[in-house]
Amino acid sequence: MTTTTENAPTGASPESPAARRKRGAWIAAGAAVLALGGYLTAAAVISISSDPSDVVSSYLGAIAEGDASAAAQIVDPGDFVDDATYLTDDVLGPATSHIEVTRVTTTKRDGDTAEVEAEMQLAGQSYTHTFTVMRETGAFWLLQPGWRPDSPLTVNVAVVVQDELSLTGVEQVDLAGAELDLDVDTSGRRSTSAYVPVYPAVYELTGPDRGPYFAIAPAELVAFPSPTLGDNAVGSLAVTATEELRSAILDAAKVRADACVEPGTSTDAACPASIRQADPSTTGVAQEPYDLTFVNGQRFMTTVVFWRPAEEGATSGARTTSYRTSLVGTYTIDGDDLTIEFTPWEDQ
Rank of each mutant, 00 (worst) to 15 (best):
A201L: 07
Q162Y: 14
D89H: 11
T137S: 14
S53G: 11
A139E: 05
K254I: 03
L205T: 04
D83S: 13
V234D: 02
E220M: 03
Q73P: 03
S247V: 08
K254T: 12
L165G: 03
P208E: 01
H129K: 12
L338F: 04
E100A: 14
E65K: 14
D291L: 09
I249G: 05
V91E: 06
G329N: 04
Q298V: 00
L87K: 14
Q348M: 12
P94Y: 01
G37P: 10
L237A: 07
C271T: 02
Q125S: 14
E119S: 15
T107E: 11
A29K: 06
G24P: 00
P227R: 07
I99S: 06
V133S: 05
R135P: 12
A215Q: 13
E15L: 13
A310K: 12
G61Q: 05
Y331E: 08
P309S: 03
V196D: 02
S193H: 11
V328M: 11
D82P: 07
A215H: 09
V56C: 10
D347Y: 04
S274K: 13
T2C: 01
P197V: 01
Y331L: 09
T315D: 08
G111Y: 00
V45H: 03
T96K: 10
A139M: 07
P52V: 02
D251F: 01
E119M: 08
T2V: 01
F306Y: 14
A29I: 15
V45D: 00
T330C: 02
G207M: 11
A19N: 09
F224M: 15
A43P: 12
R190T: 04
P344W: 02
L245W: 04
T240I: 13
D337F: 00
T267A: 13
R135I: 02
S236Y: 15
Q348N: 12
R103D: 15
K22D: 01
S57F: 00
A318T: 04
S326Q: 14
V81H: 09
L87W: 11
T137Q: 13
I216C: 09
V116F: 02
L237K: 12
G38R: 06
M1G: 15
T186S: 15
M301H: 00
V198C: 05
A278W: 06
T132K: 13
D291V: 01
T240K: 13
Q277Y: 00
G317D: 09
L60K: 13
T168Y: 05
V155N: 10
Y59P: 04
P344Q: 07
T113N: 11
G297V: 01
R246L: 01
T41A: 11
G317I: 05
V91I: 08
S50N: 09
A158G: 15
